[in-house]
């Protein structure tokens, strides 16, 4: 099976989850269901299969271009959802995660981000380089999930402020729980990103691009700043949610921009 077919199947699963979310939102009977969880599980299985097939073909971790980075990011996000969603009883996180995974993968499939098989460069297999890249992307997966929890917080908070309690209000978790989840996800992402950056210093024999180093440190500083402000209670939980949404949006936008200025579109 062609690896892109696996990715299309995965994207279709997330589309089903997304469409179901829209349908139940429209009907006003919004509740997390097994259907959404099943769609997420199916999407995750196909994502994993895609990464395995692509990794096997490259004989390396499939993180050689923006296309693969987006898929790996989507995979990390869904993986973390299965861990975090269960641990924090935030099953509804999946309802919001599937649209994001669908968007990432649709964009990756439609935009000309993937290199043709013949042109895919042979990657110099470097364990530290792969560790650095994989851990960093999983960290961004945690930030993506913090973004999702942030959106949920802002939606719920708005309903509480405006006194307009729609069907979604009863299904969304309490804002206190969401605030805790955002903090923990940012903390998890921050620790992983720190480990990712530190492992990058162990990479030898490969010229690391300056822009990427500054970008990585910049993202690390932004999330570190959010954590510190939250710890010192300088910002309200609402502001933390807004920052989680803004920080990830900026990270994603600059990641794309970085791809254009990187030589040969490599990351």
């Amino acid at each position: 099976m062609h690896d892109r077919a696996l990715l299309e199947a995965s994207t279709f699963c997330f589309l089903l989850g997304f469409a179901y979310t829209m349908f139940v939102l429209g009907s006003g009977r919004f509740q997390p269901s097994r259907f959404n969880f099943g769609a997420m599980l199916g999407g995750f299985a196909f994502q994993t299969a895609f990464l395995v097939v692509r990794g096997h073909a490259l004989n390396a971790c499939p993180l050689t271009n923006l296309f693969e980075v987006l898929i790996f990011l989507s995979w990390s996000m869904v993986l973390l959802y299965f861990v975090v969603g269960t641990a924090y009883r935030l099953s509804l996180l999946g309802v919001f995660t599937s649209p994001l995974a669908f968007m990432f993968q649709t964009f990756a499939l439609i935009a000309p981000l993937d290199s043709p098989p013949a042109l895919r460069r042979r990657v110099l297999v470097q364990p530290w380089l792969e560790t650095h890249a994989a851990i960093s992307i999983i960290a961004y997966g945690a930030f993506a999930l913090a973004f999702v929890a942030g959106v949920m917080y802002l939606v719920q908070e708005r309903q509480l402020k405006t006194h307009r309690l729609r069907g979604l209000f009863f299904a969304l978790p309490p804002i206190a729980d969401l605030a805790v989840a955002i903090n923990r996800l940012i903390f998890t992402g921050f620790i992983l990103l720190t480990a990712g950056l530190l492992s990058g210093f162990e990479v030898h024999g490969v010229q690391m691009e300056r822009n990427k180093i500054f970008w990585g440190i910049g993202v690390w500083l932004i999330y570190g700043g959010i954590l510190q402000a939250d710890k010192w209670r300088r910002v309200t939980p609402r502001r933390v949610a807004q920052l989680a949404v803004a920080a990830f949006s900026i990270t994603l936008a600059t990641l794309w921009g970085l791809n254009f200025i990187a030589p040969n579109g490599s990351l």
Binding site: Q156, L160, F169, P173, P174, I175, A176, D177
Partner: peptide, 8 residues
């Protein structure tokens, strides 16, 4: 209900 949606 509202209190539970704010504080858990």
């Amino acid at each position: 209900d509202l209190a539970e949606k704010i504080f858990g």
